[in-house]
Design a protein around this nucleic acid. Structure first.
Lengths: 181, 181
DNA sequence: GCAATATTTACACCCAGTGCCAGAACAAGT
DNA sequence: ACTTGTTCTGGCACTGGGTGTAAATATTGC
């Protein structure tokens, strides 16, 4: 069902594809499509719960003496490890998410729990609360950096996703204040 | 007109307030409201063009030998300097933007040019292009950090906005990788 | 006062999303 | 096989944001 919708989005564009088009393409009523996806935006995200669970698992595995930046970077990169055959669909999804304004905005909402997990981890490590300014800055900027790496990966067909994520996160962790100095 | 809408949002909630309510409150037709604001979301943002122009001006004023992080931090903080009498309205706007999901997402779209300006500045300083991974990471994470500071400011009525922005940006610029080490 | 122009309005659309209810399909237990 | 309960699906009417269009109503300049 999501495959059919993805194909329609790719062929005709996201905004141009109506829920009726999708319903007709799948061979089901419009109402039923809304039973499986809470919104048109949500169709583009796949089983995001899995990625989130993987992030949590990798964070939990981090040894206590590992520096915070390394722990987060490794966990984010590792949780975005995909089989080669999964990449084309992921690329299609991310191409939409990073280019369609409505989806770009929706990612803020979709990644909320993901950021929450990260903030919890930071709070655990630094001994504060998840809603402290510092923990929130870490969570927000890590997500922003990951999104940036995805944008870059989508634009460069030959690029390696994990390598891009790692590279971008290293820049963030090292501090962007001294760049070029 | 935006003042009336803001008051309705504050009283009845953003989603609960329809465009008809706003039109009626202003004493104008619904269609006319859409002539002044391209969308319901856009009503909440004020004259954002001014903030953007101020950011550009402050970046342009930065001496060439100033470290990148300092230049960006000072420009962002300075461009968010408000008169005391402007703060209540700003707080109301930001309270909506940071709490209503639809607006939270919309900020991604609204701040696009703002991020572009920042990426241009980074490219100028580092000698690359604005769409390079590093420049994009700087722009995206700076925006994410500023948004985080705003969230914090909205939640803490006594907090000083400029001080919070400065504090959050210092964390970002110094690098979040070594926090707690 | 009149003509050119800009603003406002009414009206008819499209599309996403929701609530509700009736019926189809399916899974048992007897 | 028959009933009973449940889950899935479809239809329908409705709300609300947003757009196109063309008529009506100011506003401006002369």
């Amino acid at each position: 069902m999501s495959a059919t919708a993805l194909a329609l989005f790719a062929r005709n564009g996201f905004e141009e594809t109506t829920m009726d088009d999708i319903a007709e393409g799948v061979g089901v009523s419009r109402r039923t499509v809304f039973r499986y996806f809470t919104s048109k935006n949500d169709i583009v995200w796949g089983d995001f719960a899995t990625v989130r669970a993987r992030l949590r698992a990798h964070l939990a595995e981090s040894p206590a003496d590992e520096p915070l930046g390394d722990a987060i970077r490794r966990a984010v990169v590792a949780s975005n490890r995909y089989e080669a055959e999964e990449l084309p669909e992921l690329r299609a999804r991310m191409a939409l998410i990073t280019s369609v304004p409505a989806l770009q905005g929706h990612s803020m909402v979709r990644y909320e729990e993901w950021r929450g997990d990260l903030a919890e981890f930071v709070a655990l490590r630094l001994g504060g609360r998840a809603d402290d300014l510092v923990a929130q800055v870490v969570a927000q900027t890590t997500m922003a950096t990951a999104m940036t790496a995805f944008v870059d990966w989508v634009r460069n067909p030959e690029a390696d996703l994990e390598q891009r994520l790692d590279e971008a996160l290293r820049v963030l962790m090292a501090g962007i204040g001294r760049l070029g100095a």
